[in-house]
Amino acid sequence: MIHLRGQHQQIPEFEITEKESISKLADSIPAELKVSGRIALGIMVDGNENPEARWDSITGILYSAGIDAPAAIDAAGTIIEGPPRVGIWLMPDNQSEGELEDFVSNLVPDEDPVWPRAKDYIDDIPTKDRKFKQKKRSRAILAAWLATREDPRQMGLAIKTQDLDANQPPALIFADWLRRTFE
């Protein structure tokens, strides 16, 4: 996100706290909302296999903290006016199943020569030799692709070096959600 902000100057500054697990994140929402001087709180989680269930659990917590969320997820990222303003983004795109890695995969330029190879490399591995579960496939492909960057493995850096295209539509929509959340 920091590197994405580097590419989109209109996104205001914000702080990032990594919550390690969905349950820690959920538990902390009431206290995070009450932090002194809090203007906005952006909540970013993986939708995983069931984005709607995730949405229900996040909005349920917000509701008990006195914040009414709309009934349905906004594909462009949800914003609930405050104070504090609350933004909700379910990776990858507020609609599909998946996670952060799926979002990042969408930023790989269409003409990238390595991406099809990374895909083939992962998919060609016989099932018995794979240690990852099928639902982690896109994560595995992205990791394989990232392994071929100048500084292998770092997702954010690939945005900075423009191996990832921060102007792909999914990135623009996400950047706009960040801007609307923290402006």
Partner: peptide
């Protein structure tokens, strides 16, 4: 907390406090 609407009290329940202490969320 003092803001443009005047002085107000932000209340933390014991469960809020438990999380805030564990995750070091500023209260």
């Amino acid at each position: 907390e003092e803001d443009e609407d005047g002085l107000r009290a932000v209340e933390y329940t014991e469960s809020d406090l438990a999380v805030a202490a564990e995750q070091r969320i500023e209260v």
